[in-house]
Amino acid sequence: MDDNAPLPPGLRIIVPLLLGGVMLALWQGLVWWLEVPKFVLPAPTLIAQSLYNDWGTLIVSLWITLRITLMAFVIALVCGVALAVLSAQSRLVEISIFPYAVMLQVTPVVAIAPLILIWVGLEHIDRALLILATIVAFFPILSNTTLGLKSVDHNLRDLFVLYGAGAGQRLRLLQLPTALPYLLAGMKISGGLALIGAVVAEFVAGSGTGAGLAWRIIESANRLNIPRMFAALILLSALGIVIFLLMAGLQTMLLRHWHESAVRRER
């Protein structure tokens, strides 16, 4: 079969759903057949039940995790773009900033957590979580935007010189639009990383004023409430998927007219 042949519409949704259904049924059947204890592997129905019963607690935790993720993402976005723009204006700024950005990126966030915790104080764990998640989400935005700002077509740059464009005009009308596809690719990675950062930070630093999803998972594990642990996991991955889809949607929306990555081709 030709791999490039167009698939009938809807198949992209139906086939994975079908596969998921089959796997769930298999899981349910095996757990029941082999009589697996629920603190080792709970049946899907039990997880669904837990999701339903603990919905009140879980939704609050979901909101707390989501809030940290979003705030970290926005701060990372603003700081990353600002620093990239700054370093695009001057090579000196670029070479002075970049090593430290890399250092921040390669140092495992788990290792910095205790230090951040001491700095912000144990009564402000939320701030520590936010800082840690931001550190994780920051780098892809910075490095992608920096690359994008540098990818300006040489002739277009000359054209701007010919018509006497100022630095502000060059940035706004030439460099930023050129960098947009790169920035969006960075945002797609960062969105996921912000969530990972928020969860890892909570594992390491503990919960703040309210317990996020990561704390629910630890707590459920301690109580051997495995169905609820699974329920929290499902919410986490659902959150990750929603973030990814939003970023992909934004990418398509902004690039569909002109960038190869988002343009639909008719064959």
């Binding site: 077509d153 002739n155 277009l156 054209l159 701007f160 018509y163 006497g164 464009a165 005009q169 009308l173 030439l174 639009p177 947009l180 007219h257 002109w258 960038h259």
Partner: peptide, 19 residues
């Protein structure tokens, strides 16, 4: 050497815009 993100109008408008 056109700006791919801009329409034909905006590309032709560019020199005037820069001025």
């Amino acid at each position: 050497t056109l700006m791919p993100w801009a329409t034909v109008f905006d590309n032709v408008f560019l020199p005037l815009r820069l001025a």
